[in-house]
Design a protein around this nucleic acid. Structure first.
Lengths: 236, 236
DNA sequence: TTGGCTAATTGACATTAATCAATTTTGAAT
DNA sequence: ATTCAAAATTGATTAATGTCAATTAGCCAA
């Protein structure tokens, strides 16, 4: 465990939208109280219900946000470098709504929540950035909610594949992005159902081998999936 | 249609968390460009995909936020006085993700989005309030997402009833809060399924007559519903 | 009060998805 | 390469939910 933030990590964090516009002085203030840790895979970083003591920044690796209730568990989102999580809880000084665990070996920066709140009040650049980030988070969840409520699991998978393709550059063959059991949870279904859903997309030209997907007929798949920018465009 | 904001509406709006902490000067700036309209029931106020020209404030009545895709429609949330909607789209200068329609005769204030963004940059009290409001919105959607992904429709209904009861003061008989078809959509099910779900809760002491619900056995219902503050407590 | 409209309910059925159990496949460690 | 454990797939079945059609109930306006 490393205590204190190595200066070598500063540029990565400074490069985040969230920290790009603030004054050097305030940035230094935040960094002074922060530290960085390396975690192995599958480590639970935070547990839902706990008080939000730190804003977390994923510097490398990846982190899954998940929730549990009544012995069931579901994957809510994945955080990839370089971005933050638990921002809303930090701002509201409220307990975490989701737990977080590393998916792989990850490097995480921890910034004390009270420092974040303090600097927020004095640095308008930082305040602006936080609002933008929060609005983005909110809109992402709303899109996800629409996906869940308006589409069947087959349609969700089809649209996930198209988003994945776009994210990978638009080629007709690409990586699925997740282990299948995790993807199933993200899409709100069981692994068995996902396996069958892939077969259900076969008539639309979708081929899957391990984590590799290939789309034989872009047109057929899009015609079935009916992607919608107000659900599937994660950039706005 | 009334053009311009009557001064008599100022106190209601000023009383909102969102506008309570800002300077008088900035508040006046916002109000000068704003206006208030009265709408009959079932009027579509905004349509998803449209540019976000105004921040909306519900002064009286109620407004439903809903979304459509592929000829399907789902209810996303209800906005009751006195609160705002479309804040995230306003901040991000992005298109609305949801449509809005009045449920009843409603009085709505419209504040130009560009004014909101401008004042945000200069008034730190306002900035703070916007962040708090957005964080609240975000957490509300996350809770709703957990409700959807972790619970069956029967469990969602049971917990809805308990939340409703709490909101109504805790008595064992209270109003359902919505027309049943709308509640079904909010809970992510069909009206037929909702009707059967009410029957499914009968063994736990739930009686429904029209919009009136009564709980015969608080303990049984809670034991079944397993309410969780990280899903069902809308105050934090 | 009485139509007449919409909402709500009910039954029958179809579809979708979850569960359980049994293999098969995969991938990481040796 | 070999081995082992976890992941993925498959089949059979059950459970949950949606759809369609037909009533029934409730409400508002004339």
């Amino acid at each position: 465990m490393n205590i204190g933030m190595p200066e070598s990590d500063y540029p990565d964090i400074r490069g985040l939208h969230l920290f790009a516009e603030m004054s050097d002085e305030h940035f230094q203030t935040l960094m002074r109280g922060s530290y960085v840790q390396n975690f192995p895979p599958q480590i639970e970083l935070i547990t839902e219900g706990d008080p939000s003591d730190f804003l977390h920044v994923v510097l490398s690796g990846s982190v899954e946000l998940f929730s549990s209730w009544n012995n069931r568990e579901t994957s809510m989102a994945t955080v990839r470098p370089i971005s933050t999580f638990i921002l809303a809880a930090t701002i509201k000084e409220a307990p975490y709504l989701m737990s977080a665990r590393t998916l792989e070996k990850s490097r995480i920066a921890l910034i004390p929540s009270q420092d974040v709140r303090k600097v927020f009040d004095t640095d308008s650049g930082f305040a602006r950035a936080i609002v933008t980030e929060l609005a983005q988070c909110y809109r992402t969840v709303v899109k996800s909610q629409k996906d869940l409520k308006l589409r069947t699991s087959l349609e969700r998978l089809a649209n996930y594949i198209l988003r994945c393709q776009r994210h990978a550059g638009g080629g007709d063959t690409f990586d699925l992005g997740y282990e299948k059991r995790r993807l199933a949870s993200i899409l709100g279904m069981t692994p068995e159902n996902l396996s069958r859903a892939f077969k259900g997309l076969h008539p639309y030209g979708v081929q899957v081998k391990g984590r590799n997907v290939s789309i034989r007929s872009q047109k057929d798949l899009e015609q079935f999936a009916k992607p919608d920018r107000l659900i599937d465009d994660y950039s706005s």
